[in-house]
Design a binder for these strands. Structure first.
Length: 242
DNA sequence: GCGACAG
DNA sequence: ATCTTGTCGC
């Protein structure tokens, strides 16, 4: 079983089919620890003209998932494209291993995009993860694209409640290491949790999310991606890109 | 052993 | 994640 482990993981790393479905949790953990070595969250000057939002929708107790990516102009945040993909997943939902369920479908949706966004915001965490490889970081490393995470709940780490006004924020700490920010996207409303995924830094992620806030608690890229995949799941929209 | 636990 | 009406508070 140990042999299968090593070979299986190396295979999974290069397998274009991204067949994560048969990986065990211990194998998935080894793969995460391998991929984390490739994460780059150094700060940089980003010129963003297009930003993307990625999310998944599903029916309870079903192995079918509906993945989607929405493209928005930046900083105007006007819709300029999308990609929708229906797929099957057999990897269970286990906190800390979300990527193994959603990344394959999101990667397929990514490939079908005619235009790639300069930055992709994934619904979930970036490095604010037990092994610093949340779904946004995992997706970024596998696709080689700038990414960051924006989650509604904390997975790991601690933070002190930020001020109550929109824009207020406080660091999410894992011991002495900062792994993200608790960000008040709407006054007197629960904060969202942001963290860099890949090819952009901690401060970059904060500046980006600041410019993605609209009228609601959930930043526009994530909110619109959620709305998009839900309509897709209900059959109100067809699979494809545009 | 106990509590926590993205979507 | 998804299923759902009303209700509390600014």
């Amino acid at each position: 079983m140990f042999v299968r482990g090593i070979i299986g993981i190396l295979f999974a790393e290069i397998d274009v089919m991204e067949n994560y479905d048969t990986l065990s949790i211990p194998e998935a953990t080894i793969l995460q620890n391998e991929l984390r070595k490739r994460v780059d969250i150094s700060e940089r000057e980003l010129s963003i003209r297009c930003i993307g939002g990625a999310d998944i929708s599903l029916n309870l107790y079903s192995s079918t998932i509906y993945a989607g990516i929405i493209l928005l102009s930046f900083p105007a945040l006007q819709p300029m494209g999308w990609s929708l993909v229906k797929a099957e997943t057999h990897f269970p939902y286990v906190p800390g291993y979300l990527a193994f369920r959603e990344v394959p479908a999101l990667t397929e949706a990514w490939k079908r995009l005619a235009i790639k966004p300069d930055v992709l915001i994934v619904d979930g965490h970036g490095i604010a993860h037990p092994r610093r490889l949340g779904i946004a970081a995992h997706f970024g490393v596998e696709t080689g694209q700038p990414s960051m995470g924006c989650a509604k709940k904390l997975l790991t780490g601690k933070y002190s409640e930020p001020g109550l006004l929109v824009g207020d924020h406080s660091p999410i700490m894992a011991g002495t290491e900062q792994i993200g920010y608790a960000f008040r996207s709407k006054s007197k409303t629960a904060p969202v949790f942001v963290s860099p995924g890949h090819l952009l830094g901690m401060e970059n992620s904060l500046q980006i999310i600041r410019q993605c806030v609209g009228k609601y608690r959930i930043p526009e890229p994530t909110r619109l991606a959620h709305e998009l995949v839900n309509r897709f799941r209900r059959g109100e929209l067809p699979e494809g890109a545009g």
